[in-house]
Design a protein around this nucleic acid. Structure first.
Lengths: 216, 216, 216, 216
DNA sequence: GATGAATGAGTTTTCATTCAT
DNA sequence: CATGAATGAAAACTCATTCAT
């Protein structure tokens, strides 16, 4: 009659992700989570050492998966051209985020809050992400495929494109009539990204037009 | 001895914006706000009819200012070329957001939460925004200046670029060593946006490369 | 434009009586009263020295009028037969209560609460009432018109009949389809009371049937 | 160490009844109740879903018991004469109210306030009470035992006699030196009621004296 | 492992009143 | 005389967590 440990823990996380996404971390009560998961509230403290621990578990689950996508593709740098490598990495991340769209939205929102835990996350995970992107971009420039744009700007634009559909999903729905969780979302959205890569990142001709006198 | 109404109300809003941004709406208590504003907690209910009313006041203040930036520039469509008009509009919004960067970050985060008020905001303000952008894009295409890209995709990319620096400001700091509130931020960031407009939105040659077989 | 002192005071009392009756003394806020009276809440403290003072003013107004009805008729004992005197006194009270039915209901309810003020009221006003009734009943017995029933029981029954229609007005409405504030209420209700006086209080024959072995 | 559920719930209700009676519903705080019951204030919300729920529980407890007294005796109509049946019913109610005299006083006072809950109570319970009384009175008239007085007036007088000692207990004390909770109260008070039944309700001779020209 | 009763610290809000204007 | 901004105390309630079972 009782669920096994595994099941209970997972039920809690699943409910937590849904509710954290819908109402925010602080806006969600452990009793709400417990009720949605059909378990006793005390179990949350038991399994996750409190609500904060539950949040931490969610964040870790997300970033582990997220970075795995990128790391996997960085290894292909030796065999694939950098632009292809970048495209595959971005696609992999988008797919991961699509599969975990509730978690994704919630995490990117939550790390914009200045809490201790989000500072820790940034200090560890985002630094890794930055390093992986750096490896790819560096290679692309060395190979003469990428324009020699300021790396920081490129990263920001990439990041922006990766997270935006999840953070502003209501805008997506309103404007594009598309949800990030839809079947063909990744393919549709990748076109936009690929277009950007081809026309802006790989556009060697125009590279100096804007950034000659770069004060950046 | 007593502060005037204006002062008290403004002190509360200022404190609220700071704290809502730092700790999130639900993570902030009215007592925190009152303490920071150096006023009595009861004043919050007195002036704003409760915490929710205070949130609403923040949202309205933001979106009124935000839309005013855009509306003002749409009127210039008759005298300026659409790409110039778009650039000025975006720059105006960026400036507004820079001046209110705390409010901006907080608002874009909060509307991603599924609350009644955020649904109302979207229903009224975001629809207007969409309409203004539509007017500009339509004119640009008619004038043969903008590539005939799917309007929805363009809007999403624009929106993405406009909000990203504020929502992911920690990333900006980490990667670009730049804060949105800095003096030259708008000018620096506008280069990136202008580059995108010139090389992607106005690039007539390539327009069919990606979107021939558009399933979009 | 401003109301005169008299008017403001009266407006407040009127509103207070209405609201105290509807929602009870503790259930009513001074701001509710002020809003209903269209005056500033500060005036209540100003004119009545606080909410408690307002309550006191209501109670005094009621009991002064109430006792005046009775006292007036007691003077007639010298010229009228006691039963007629009693009937007139009761009718006078009923009329007074009918004219002030909101106040009446509220007062009889409130004095059943064990507050300092209700104890004081009882100590002064109800003792007077008891004395007036005693004078009438005593005369009636001396004249051989009233049965020699225990005075206390008669008083209780009288009191019961006098207050019941106001305290249980919802029952009156439900059962009798009559409101105490109606035009003919006093006349209709007096029939019931007169019947009781004639058949029970003045019924000399049966008087010993029940109270022979009185343990009372 | 912890009290069982039953105990805690009952402790709260007991304390609530005492305090609601003494200071009124709105005049009583949950903290007062909790302190008197020696439990944590949070338990009140836990067990009764808030102060309002506690009030509701009190009202229900009262009216369930109250109506049970009457219903039980109505069943005896087949074997007992109606006057006897009525007397037993009234005595049963008086006994119930004596045993719960604090609750009784508080409830009859509270339902005279125009709240949502009191309206609901009246709509359900008082209608039943009226129906039970109707059955008895109807039988009495059919049997030729009760005078054919207007049913509504009889009900009002009965109701008046039943509730008065509790609502005006301070008057009882002052005038009769008797408390409703005293041992012999019911017997003493029943004499008064029986006298009324015998001399007024069952008095066939006089029945038309007052109500000939009845406008009622 | 799982429960639900119980808690104390915390929340937001309402209150009657005061006071400078 | 009247106002309305401002206040501190108190209100009811919610919270995450604990613990005996």
């Amino acid at each position: 009659m009782n669920a096994t440990v595994k099941e209970t823990k997972d039920l809690i996380m699943e409910a937590a992700i849904f509710l954290f996404n819908t109402k925010g971390y602080d806006g969600t009560g452990v009793r709400d989570i417990a009720k949605k998961a059909n378990v006793n509230p005390a179990n949350i403290s038991y399994y996750f050492k409190g609500k904060k621990g539950l949040l931490e578990a969610c964040l870790i689950q997300f970033f582990e998966g997220y970075l795995a996508c990128l790391e996997e593709k960085v290894f292909l740098l030796e065999t694939l051209p950098p632009d292809e490598c970048l495209k595959q990495g971005l696609k992999s991340i988008l797919s991961f985020q699509r599969e975990n769209h509730l978690l994704t939205r919630f995490v990117w929102r939550e790390v914009s809050i200045d809490s201790q835990i989000s500072r820790e996350i940034i200090a560890s995970y985002l630094v890794k992400e930055k390093y992986f992107l750096h490896l790819i971009l560096e290679q692309g420039i060395k190979d003469g495929i990428f324009a020699n744009l300021p790396e920081s700007l490129v990263m920001i634009q990439l990041k922006s494109m990766l997270t935006m559909p999840f953070l502003q999903s209501q805008y997506l729905r309103e404007v594009w009539h598309t949800f990030p969780q839809e079947k063909y979302f990744v393919e549709k959205y990748m076109m936009m990204i690929e277009r950007w890569i081809d026309s802006t990142l790989c556009s060697l001709l125009q590279e100096n037009r804007h950034f000659d006198r770069k004060i950046i």
